[in-house]
Write a protein that binds this DNA or RNA. Structure first.
Length: 594
RNA sequence: GCGGGUGUAGUUCAGUUGGUUAGAACGCUUCCCUGUCACGGAAGAGGUCGCGGGUUCGAGUCCCGUCACUCGCGCCA
């Protein structure tokens, strides 16, 4: 007989009755009745009920200790079966016990969710991972990654590794840096993404690349952001945007469908038609719209400029270049006054003066600003937005960028208040035609708005002849339920276009050569047209697990301050290590004093 | 760097207007219990009320500072 087990704890069934078995696992729960003792024994496959009589070792043992038992599988008596357990028709009568490992008193409960806080869970992560929720989410993650690999290979992609110790990249997030011992004063950087390497693989002729790539960014955390995270990184040669969409829509839709019932409720998966960035910003006030939210935004600047509108707060702002955006909320006129007050005070907490509205209970609008809008303009509002009796419209007046953002936030907030966000569905969509450049509001300087390596639509001609702020990039995102799942683009593989593209953003040829010389050189030796994208693995798992926090879908993870309380990272290093690396610390005064 | 929230037993939390010995549930220890499956019952241990200072006859409670965690803003091509 095997030293530890003949079966796993989730395996035994009626058909095993009469067998002598050996099981190993953790003591999940104990129910001691004096003469008879029940123990639920747990391993990763499930639970089996053990029955023991007069066994002093088992009576004393604490939960979460590890034991091996030998015993006989017997049928449970009528009325004592447990339909909630897959093994609930049988139990194992214990003949002998070996205690493999005694557990101390545990800092929080494993057998049930006692609501323990995140800091203590992270400190004892191995205990946390034994709990049902974390255990199943980590398995989900593993299964999703396996499915990604399988589906990508099936589509003709090959998986590559790219360097972890690489060069610091000039723009973007802060790099995590690694000092070089052999090269005093020089540093490696951990990759923010393998962007240049995957493009270089295209120039190496490999055609279809993917990697479950670790990425590192030294910026402050959020619930959905970590210092290290994984992307399904993809690049393809000889493709246009639609080729990337075709293959990745298939892969990602397939993955969502494969795991859509993880939470226990089956979710539908809908991949909606592509949407332009401009349309998304106008209609949803976001470049990652939650398309489960039925509310839409309309520009009504012209209507508020009408001769019968006397709302001067808006009119004056429009004269200075402001815009008015309207959020149409069907059948909200019957909402109690408190609803409108709540929306208004929320808007004020966001820094807006308030959120004006008109409620069309009948043809004649009511509400704080209705009396400033004449009958003709009210009718225009109703016609423009196809409003019905009982509908409400909220207004935001701001500069274009701020109005979009505020209307977008209000759209989300109002839909949440009214609980009209559709449930049980993943709504995915490609957002296309991102602008190539944007104006930095602080410096007034034109800069890249996304990836500087994407091909400008219209190529060199557009760069030479168009207002940079009107040039579109071949740059796209994939969004799902309000999250940005992926970002990508068709790359610029022509050095002369790249020089001009960087020049428009104020980067000289020297800078370009210095920062991206390696890749630029590669472009000069025969570069295939290519493009790709990168999907956030963790975001996908979060959505499938219905968890708002990224830390719930990782086995080992740092806290919000990017510290690991279990491994005690980051940590001090010795003087000798510093010396090896040719480093001297220059600490802020606060830290030094402590 | 900035703002909101939280901080009381191992864990999750309650604690009134500042007033006697700071409570509950779960967990833990000891004992009882032969059919439970969140078993049940009895007894018990366990507290620097995050830390420091202040106001007060008296502070878990009020004030100031500070630290930790958390959510968000900035930041994240």
């Amino acid at each position: 007989m095997h030293l530890y087990r003949t079966h796993k704890c989730g395996e035994l069934r009626k058909s095993d009755i009469g067998k002598s078995v050996k099981l190993s696992g953790w003591v999940h729960r104990k129910r001691d009745h004096g003469g008879v003792l029940f123990i639920d024994l747990r391993d990763t496959s499930g639970l089996t009920q053990l029955v023991a009589q007069g066994n002093a070792d088992l009576e004393k043992i604490r939960p979460e200790s590890v034991i091996t038992i030998e015993g006989d599988v017997v049928a449970r008596a009528d009325g004592t079966t447990n339909a909630k357990m897959p093994t609930g028709d049988v139990e194992v009568v214990v003949k002998s016990v070996t205690v493999q490992s005694h557990a101390d008193v545990i800092p929080f409960q494993v057998a049930e969710d006692d609501g323990a806080g995140e800091d203590v869970r992270l400190k004892y992560r191995y205990l946390d991972l034994r709990r049902e929720g974390m255990h199943s989410r980590v398995r989900l993650r593993n299964n999703v990654i396996a499915a990604m690999r399988r589906r990508m290979w099936d589509e003709g992609f090959q998986e590559f590794n790219t360097p972890i110790l690489t060069a610091s990249s000039p723009e973007g997030a802060r790099d995590y840096l690694v000092p070089s011992r052999l090269h005093p004063g020089k540093f490696y950087a951990l990759p923010q993404a393998p962007q240049q390497f995957k493009q270089l693989l295209m120039m190496s002729g490999f055609d279809r690349y993917f990697q479950i790539a670790p990425c590192f960014r030294d910026e402050d955390g959020r619930a959905d952001r970590l210092a290290e995270f994984y992307q399904l990184d993809v690049e393809m040669s000889f493709v246009q945007q639609e080729d990337v969409f075709d293959v990745m829509t298939k892969v990602v839709k397939g993955i969502f469908e494969e795991f859509a019932d993880f939470t226990g409720t089956k979710h539908r998966v809908e991949f909606l038609p592509n949407m332009s960035y401009a349309y998304a910003m106008l209609t949803y006030g976001s470049d990652k719209p939650d398309l489960r939210n039925p509310l839409k935004i309309t520009d009504v600047t012209e209507i508020f400029n009408g001769h019968d509108v006397t709302f001067n707060a808006f009119k004056n702002y429009i004269a200075k270049g402001g815009v008015v955006r309207a959020i149409h909320v069907p059948q909200a006129a019957k909402q109690p006054r408190s609803f409108f007050d709540k929306v208004n005070s929320w808007a004020q907490s966001e820094g807006a003066p308030g959120l004006g509205y008109i409620a069309f209970e009948t043809e004649e609008g009511k509400g704080p600003i209705a009396k400033f809008v004449g009958a003709e303009s009210q009718k225009k509002l109703r016609d423009t937005m196809k409003m019905q009796d009982g509908d409400v419209v909220f207004f935001v007046c701001e500069s274009e960028a701020k109005a979009s953002a505020m209307a977008g936030k209000a759209r989300t907030r109002i839909a949440q208040d009214l609980d009209i966000i559709e449930k049980g569905v993943y709504k995915l969509c490609w957002i296309v035609d991102f602008p190539m450049y944007e104006m930095d509001e602080k410096t007034g300087k034109v800069d890249f708005s996304h990836n500087p390596f994407s091909m400008p639509q219209g190529g060199l001609d557009a760069l030479m002849n168009k207002d940079p702020l009107t040039i579109l990039a071949t740059q796209y995102d994939c969004v799902c339920n309000g999250y940005e799942l992926a970002s990508g683009g068709i790359r610029n593989h022509k050095p002369e276009i790249m020089e001009k593209a960087f020049a428009l953003a104020g980067y000289s040829k020297d800078v370009l050569e210095k920062k991206f010389g390696g890749m630029l050189n590669a472009f000069r030796y025969g570069a295939p047209p290519h493009g790709g994208c990168a999907f956030g693995v963790d975001r996908i798992v979060m959505l499938l697990a219905d968890e708002p926090n990224l830390r719930e879908v990782y086995a080992f993870v740092m806290n919000g301050q990017y510290e690991d309380p279990m491994m005690n990272a980051p940590s001090d290093i010795t003087e000798a290590q510093l010396k090896d690396l040719h480093l001297k610390l220059n600490l802020p005064k606060k830290v030094e004093a402590a």
